[in-house]
Protein backbone atom coordinates (compact mmCIF):
# COMPACT_ATOMS: atom_id res chain seq x y z
CA UNK A 1 0.00 0.00 0.00
CA UNK A 2 2.83 2.35 0.88
CA UNK A 3 4.42 1.70 -2.50
CA UNK A 4 1.17 2.52 -4.22
CA UNK A 5 0.91 5.74 -2.30
CA UNK A 6 4.41 6.69 -3.25
CA UNK A 7 3.84 6.11 -6.92
CA UNK A 8 0.59 7.98 -6.86
CA UNK A 9 2.28 10.86 -5.16
CA UNK A 10 4.86 10.86 -7.92
CA UNK A 11 2.07 10.97 -10.42
CA UNK A 12 0.65 14.02 -8.74
CA UNK A 13 3.98 15.74 -8.72
CA UNK A 14 4.25 15.09 -12.41
CA UNK A 15 1.28 17.30 -13.03
CA UNK A 16 2.80 20.14 -11.11
CA UNK A 17 6.02 19.76 -13.03
CA UNK A 18 4.30 19.23 -16.35
CA UNK A 19 2.54 22.51 -15.85
CA UNK A 20 5.87 24.31 -15.87
CA UNK A 21 7.19 22.28 -18.77
CA UNK A 22 9.15 19.67 -16.90
CA UNK A 23 10.07 16.46 -18.66
CA UNK A 24 8.35 13.14 -17.99
CA UNK A 25 11.60 11.86 -16.50
CA UNK A 26 10.57 13.74 -13.39
CA UNK A 27 8.37 10.76 -12.55
CA UNK A 28 11.46 8.80 -11.70
CA UNK A 29 12.52 11.19 -9.02
CA UNK A 30 12.15 10.02 -5.44
CA UNK A 31 9.13 11.21 -3.54
CA UNK A 32 9.74 14.84 -2.65
CA UNK A 33 9.34 16.04 0.87
CA UNK A 34 6.68 18.49 -0.20
CA UNK A 35 4.27 15.81 -1.32
CA UNK A 36 1.83 15.25 1.49
CA UNK A 37 1.09 11.64 2.21
CA UNK A 38 -2.56 12.60 2.23
CA UNK A 39 -2.31 14.24 -1.14
CA UNK A 40 -3.55 11.39 -3.21
CA UNK A 41 -4.84 7.97 -2.40
CA UNK A 42 -7.01 5.95 -4.73
CA UNK A 43 -10.64 6.30 -3.86
CA UNK A 44 -11.32 2.66 -4.53
CA UNK A 45 -8.14 0.68 -4.86
CA UNK A 46 -8.34 -1.65 -7.81
CA UNK A 47 -6.24 -3.25 -10.47
CA UNK A 48 -4.14 -0.93 -12.51
CA UNK A 49 -5.20 2.09 -10.60
CA UNK A 50 -2.38 4.58 -10.54
CA UNK A 51 0.06 1.79 -9.94
CA UNK A 52 2.66 2.57 -12.52
CA UNK A 53 3.23 6.22 -11.93
CA UNK A 54 1.71 8.42 -14.53
CA UNK A 55 3.57 9.66 -17.53
CA UNK A 56 0.90 12.12 -18.58
CA UNK A 57 -1.29 14.59 -16.78
CA UNK A 58 -3.49 12.10 -15.04
CA UNK A 59 -3.82 11.55 -11.36
CA UNK A 60 -6.11 9.98 -8.84
CA UNK A 61 -7.98 11.78 -6.14
CA UNK A 62 -9.91 11.16 -2.99
CA UNK A 63 -13.66 11.11 -2.88
CA UNK A 64 -15.29 13.45 -0.40
CA UNK A 65 -16.14 10.41 1.70
CA UNK A 66 -12.45 9.42 1.78
CA UNK A 67 -11.58 12.92 2.86
CA UNK A 68 -14.23 12.84 5.56
CA UNK A 69 -12.93 9.53 6.86
CA UNK A 70 -9.34 10.73 6.89
CA UNK A 71 -10.24 14.11 8.26
CA UNK A 72 -8.25 16.01 5.65
CA UNK A 73 -8.90 17.53 2.30
CA UNK A 74 -6.80 16.44 -0.61
CA UNK A 75 -4.80 18.62 -2.96
CA UNK A 76 -7.08 19.99 -5.65
CA UNK A 77 -7.17 17.73 -8.70
CA UNK A 78 -6.94 18.73 -12.33
CA UNK A 79 -10.71 19.23 -12.73
CA UNK A 80 -12.56 22.27 -11.47
CA UNK A 81 -15.79 22.29 -9.48
CA UNK A 82 -18.93 23.75 -11.02
CA UNK A 83 -21.40 25.70 -8.93
CA UNK A 84 -25.19 25.96 -8.74
CA UNK A 85 -27.84 28.31 -7.40
CA UNK A 86 -29.95 27.41 -4.36
CA UNK A 87 -32.35 24.55 -5.11
CA UNK A 88 -31.25 24.51 -8.78
CA UNK A 89 -29.53 21.89 -10.87
CA UNK A 90 -29.44 23.66 -14.21
CA UNK A 91 -25.99 24.63 -15.50
CA UNK A 92 -25.33 28.34 -15.71
CA UNK A 93 -22.92 29.91 -18.20
CA UNK A 94 -19.91 29.79 -15.91
CA UNK A 95 -20.59 26.16 -15.06
CA UNK A 96 -20.70 25.29 -18.77
CA UNK A 97 -17.38 27.05 -19.36
CA UNK A 98 -15.80 25.13 -16.50
CA UNK A 99 -17.19 21.87 -17.85
CA UNK A 100 -15.68 22.63 -21.27
CA UNK A 101 -12.28 23.00 -19.63
CA UNK A 102 -12.84 19.77 -17.72
CA UNK A 103 -13.91 18.03 -20.95
CA UNK A 104 -10.69 19.19 -22.62
CA UNK A 105 -8.68 17.64 -19.82
CA UNK A 106 -10.62 14.41 -20.16
CA UNK A 107 -9.89 14.40 -23.89
CA UNK A 108 -6.20 14.88 -23.23
CA UNK A 109 -6.33 12.05 -20.70
CA UNK A 110 -8.40 9.41 -22.45
CA UNK A 111 -7.66 6.73 -19.86
CA UNK A 112 -9.02 8.75 -16.96
CA UNK A 113 -12.33 7.86 -15.40
CA UNK A 114 -14.02 10.24 -13.06
CA UNK A 115 -16.68 10.21 -10.41
CA UNK A 116 -18.85 13.29 -10.32
CA UNK A 117 -20.04 14.19 -6.84
CA UNK A 118 -23.18 16.26 -6.34
CA UNK A 119 -23.19 18.50 -3.26
CA UNK A 120 -25.65 20.95 -1.70
CA UNK A 121 -25.54 23.64 0.92
CA UNK A 122 -26.82 22.88 4.39
CA UNK A 123 -30.19 24.53 3.97
CA UNK A 124 -33.28 22.43 3.53
CA UNK A 125 -33.99 18.81 4.10
CA UNK A 126 -31.25 16.16 3.98
CA UNK A 127 -33.16 13.68 1.82
CA UNK A 128 -34.27 16.30 -0.66
CA UNK A 129 -30.69 17.51 -0.85
CA UNK A 130 -29.49 13.98 -1.60
CA UNK A 131 -31.88 13.97 -4.56
CA UNK A 132 -30.83 17.49 -5.57
CA UNK A 133 -27.15 16.52 -5.41
CA UNK A 134 -27.88 13.54 -7.67
CA UNK A 135 -29.47 15.93 -10.17
CA UNK A 136 -26.45 18.25 -10.06
CA UNK A 137 -24.01 15.41 -10.64
CA UNK A 138 -26.15 14.10 -13.49
CA UNK A 139 -26.43 17.57 -15.06
CA UNK A 140 -22.64 17.82 -15.12
CA UNK A 141 -22.34 14.29 -16.50
CA UNK A 142 -24.90 14.91 -19.24
CA UNK A 143 -23.10 18.05 -20.36
CA UNK A 144 -19.73 16.29 -20.46
CA UNK A 145 -21.35 13.62 -22.65
CA UNK A 146 -22.64 16.28 -25.05
CA UNK A 147 -19.06 17.58 -25.16
CA UNK A 148 -17.94 14.19 -26.40
CA UNK A 149 -16.84 12.36 -23.27
CA UNK A 150 -17.82 8.70 -23.22
CA UNK A 151 -20.49 7.90 -20.63
CA UNK A 152 -18.50 4.86 -19.45
CA UNK A 153 -15.83 7.20 -18.12
CA UNK A 154 -18.28 9.09 -15.93
CA UNK A 155 -20.00 7.92 -12.78
CA UNK A 156 -21.99 9.96 -10.30
CA UNK A 157 -22.74 10.01 -6.60
CA UNK A 158 -24.67 12.43 -4.42
CA UNK A 159 -23.53 13.46 -0.99
CA UNK A 160 -26.34 15.97 -0.56
CA UNK A 161 -25.52 18.44 2.18
CA UNK A 162 -23.57 15.88 4.16
CA UNK A 163 -19.96 16.69 3.24
CA UNK A 164 -19.65 20.48 2.87
CA UNK A 165 -16.30 21.86 1.77
CA UNK A 166 -17.01 25.06 3.69
CA UNK A 167 -18.65 24.77 7.09
CA UNK A 168 -19.91 28.19 8.07
CA UNK A 169 -23.54 29.24 7.83
CA UNK A 170 -23.39 32.10 5.36
CA UNK A 171 -23.98 32.59 1.64
CA UNK A 172 -20.26 32.71 0.88
CA UNK A 173 -19.90 29.20 2.26
CA UNK A 174 -23.19 27.94 0.91
CA UNK A 175 -22.28 29.01 -2.62
CA UNK A 176 -19.04 26.98 -2.40
CA UNK A 177 -20.97 23.94 -1.22
CA UNK A 178 -23.56 23.93 -4.02
CA UNK A 179 -21.30 22.15 -6.45
CA UNK A 180 -20.42 19.24 -8.60
CA UNK A 181 -16.96 17.92 -7.81
CA UNK A 182 -14.87 15.75 -10.12
CA UNK A 183 -12.70 13.03 -8.69
CA UNK A 184 -10.34 11.11 -10.94
CA UNK A 185 -10.90 7.55 -9.80
CA UNK A 186 -8.77 5.86 -12.44
CA UNK A 187 -5.87 7.50 -14.18
CA UNK A 188 -4.76 4.55 -16.33
CA UNK A 189 -6.66 1.90 -18.20
CA UNK A 190 -7.33 -1.18 -16.15
CA UNK A 191 -5.04 -3.99 -17.19
Amino acid sequence: MAAVNKLVCCGLVTIALAAVGCSPSATNKPEPATASSAAAKPATPGPGEGQRGATGESTTGQSSLDELQKGKQSTPGPLKDVYFSFDRYDLEGEARETLKVNADWLKRNPAARIEIEGHCDERGTNEYNLALGAKRAQAAKDYLITLGIATERLSTISYGEEIPVCKESNESCWSQNRRARFVVIQARPAS
Binding site: A131, A134, K135, Q138, S158
Partner: peptide, 25 residues
Amino acid sequence: GRYLGGKASPDGQFIAATVEIGGNS
Protein backbone atom coordinates in the same frame (compact mmCIF):
# COMPACT_ATOMS: atom_id res chain seq x y z
CA GLY B 1 -29.05 0.45 -6.02
CA ARG B 2 -28.87 4.01 -4.79
CA TYR B 3 -31.37 4.53 -2.02
CA LEU B 4 -31.87 7.97 -0.50
CA GLY B 5 -34.17 7.01 2.38
CA GLY B 6 -37.08 4.77 3.29
CA LYS B 7 -39.92 4.31 5.74
CA ALA B 8 -41.55 1.11 6.93
CA SER B 9 -45.35 0.98 6.68
CA PRO B 10 -47.46 0.98 9.87
CA ASP B 11 -48.91 -2.42 8.90
CA GLY B 12 -45.41 -3.87 8.88
CA GLN B 13 -45.67 -5.19 5.33
CA PHE B 14 -43.82 -2.68 3.16
CA ILE B 15 -41.11 -0.08 2.88
CA ALA B 16 -41.58 3.03 0.77
CA ALA B 17 -38.15 4.11 -0.42
CA THR B 18 -36.51 6.69 -2.66
CA VAL B 19 -34.33 5.20 -5.37
CA GLU B 20 -32.04 7.25 -7.59
CA ILE B 21 -31.35 6.16 -11.15
CA GLY B 22 -29.56 8.40 -13.61
CA GLY B 23 -30.02 11.46 -11.44
CA ASN B 24 -33.77 10.96 -11.14
CA SER B 25 -35.20 10.12 -7.75
